[in-house]
Amino acid sequence: MSTFETRPRTASLLERAGIAPAETLNAAAPHTPLPNDPPLRTARVPAQRRNPLVALVHDGSAGAILGLVRDGMTAAVADSELALVLQSLPDEGCAPRLREFLRRYRPAGVVLLPPLCEREDLAVVCGVAQVPCVRLGPVSGQPGLACDERRAAADLVVWLVGQGHVRIGLVAGPETSPSARQRELGYLDAMADSGLDRGPALIVPGDDSFESGIEAGRLLLEISPRPTAIVAGNDEMAVGVLHAAAQAGVQVPSQLSVAGFDDTPLAVRALPALTSMRVPWGAMGAEAVRRIAAGAAPVPMAGFASELVARASVQPPPA
């Protein structure tokens, strides 16, 4: 006869924290009636209780923005009974994976980070599961938390014009991104209002990555006459432009000014330090937690103020 040794099962992280999956939330020991017990009354079965979790849901592409939102949410949950968890959902099977996550862990609320905030099917999944959902970033016609990115981009370009730049290039973000579209429209607005050339040669698409910033920067630096300033749709691409300039022997900022968007920690690590339009991602994350904790109903798009942070990567163009 063979003898098998049964190992004790190791508790999961959520179990050690006292957080139960959905299958166990309504479990109860069977009741054995005693002789003097009163007759049982039929009661309405209560809805499943929610676990004290706020889930920050992302697809792994948000880069430094994820860290800014996480830090803001972490500070906000410190004063509540909620705990923050991060859930990564890859593109493939995103909606079914979110549905299963909500079924198993019944969080108190979900915060969708760009670009997932743009997906209506994920908001529908949360609605069907009756889990509050807050979307961060521009979402056309839907409740969410964002700043006016079109106005912010226009303000950045107007400021560059005020520095004396009249030939300004743009490294745009993905065409499928509402946020990238708003930033490009802001650039176009400011160039038109200033009476400046905004021809297609001055706009090169990127995909929000450092590598696409390098490639777009190379293309813009080959234009004649060359731009005296380049705005990138995020800091990652702006740092790519800095690398392209260095490879081409173009000095920043004496020969070329470069500005980014979001003001992530990468901006202060760049050389030279990167001028960037700050989007208050941390404040938006904290507000999302407060709304979930208060059980606030969705409201129209709530606006947050952007702020220009000028650093060493911009100066007036050479005479």
Score class of each variant (00 low, 15 high):
residue 78 A to E: 13
residue 58 H to V: 01
residue 70 R to K: 12
residue 63 G to W: 08
residue 50 R to H: 11
residue 57 V to H: 08
residue 54 V to E: 00
residue 46 P to M: 03
residue 62 A to T: 13
residue 87 Q to L: 15
residue 55 A to T: 11
residue 70 R to F: 14
residue 53 L to P: 05
residue 83 A to K: 11
residue 46 P to I: 03
residue 85 V to Q: 04
residue 68 L to E: 12
residue 77 V to K: 06
residue 73 M to F: 03
residue 74 T to D: 14
residue 82 L to F: 07
residue 70 R to Q: 15
residue 62 A to R: 03
residue 91 D to I: 11
residue 61 S to Y: 08
residue 82 L to M: 07
residue 87 Q to N: 13
residue 48 Q to Y: 10
residue 70 R to I: 06
residue 90 P to L: 10
residue 92 E to D: 15
residue 47 A to D: 14
residue 88 S to M: 12
residue 48 Q to P: 13
residue 46 P to Y: 02
residue 85 V to S: 10
residue 47 A to H: 07
residue 69 V to D: 01
residue 78 A to K: 11
residue 48 Q to S: 14
residue 82 L to Q: 03
residue 62 A to H: 07
residue 84 L to E: 11
residue 49 R to E: 14
residue 51 N to D: 01
residue 92 E to G: 11
residue 72 G to P: 11
residue 76 A to L: 04
residue 56 L to M: 11
residue 82 L to E: 00
residue 58 H to A: 11
residue 72 G to D: 09
residue 46 P to S: 05
residue 88 S to H: 15
residue 92 E to F: 06
residue 45 V to A: 13
residue 60 G to E: 10
residue 53 L to R: 09
residue 66 L to D: 07
residue 91 D to N: 12
residue 92 E to Q: 15
residue 71 D to Q: 15
residue 68 L to P: 03
residue 83 A to L: 15
residue 84 L to W: 07
residue 76 A to W: 04
residue 48 Q to W: 08
residue 53 L to H: 09
residue 58 H to M: 07
residue 53 L to E: 07
residue 64 A to C: 05
residue 87 Q to Y: 12
residue 89 L to W: 06
residue 46 P to H: 03
residue 75 A to G: 13
residue 73 M to W: 08
residue 46 P to E: 09
residue 53 L to D: 06
residue 72 G to R: 02
residue 72 G to E: 03
residue 47 A to T: 11
residue 87 Q to I: 07
residue 54 V to M: 05
residue 82 L to K: 00
residue 71 D to I: 03
residue 65 I to D: 00
residue 61 S to W: 09
residue 59 D to V: 00
residue 50 R to S: 13
residue 46 P to K: 08
residue 76 A to H: 02
residue 89 L to S: 10
residue 45 V to W: 06
residue 92 E to C: 04
residue 61 S to T: 15
residue 57 V to R: 03
residue 85 V to C: 06
residue 49 R to Y: 09
residue 47 A to Q: 11
residue 72 G to F: 06
residue 47 A to W: 05
residue 82 L to I: 05
residue 49 R to N: 10
residue 84 L to N: 12
residue 63 G to F: 05
residue 86 L to Y: 01
residue 56 L to R: 00
residue 62 A to Y: 03
residue 91 D to E: 15
residue 86 L to V: 14
residue 80 S to L: 02
residue 68 L to F: 05
residue 79 D to A: 14
residue 61 S to K: 10
residue 81 E to Y: 02
residue 55 A to N: 05
residue 89 L to T: 10
residue 57 V to I: 12
residue 69 V to M: 08
residue 47 A to Y: 01
residue 58 H to R: 00
residue 73 M to C: 11
residue 81 E to S: 14
residue 76 A to R: 07
residue 83 A to I: 04
residue 72 G to H: 09
residue 61 S to C: 07
residue 90 P to M: 07
residue 67 G to R: 05
residue 59 D to W: 01
residue 85 V to P: 05
residue 68 L to Q: 14
residue 85 V to K: 04
residue 61 S to Q: 14
residue 79 D to K: 12
residue 82 L to N: 02
residue 54 V to S: 00
residue 88 S to I: 09
residue 46 P to Q: 05
residue 74 T to C: 00
residue 51 N to W: 01
residue 80 S to R: 10
residue 54 V to F: 01
residue 71 D to W: 10
residue 60 G to I: 09
residue 64 A to H: 14
residue 77 V to Y: 06
residue 50 R to A: 09
residue 72 G to T: 04
residue 57 V to Q: 02
residue 85 V to T: 13
residue 65 I to P: 00
residue 67 G to E: 10
residue 45 V to G: 08
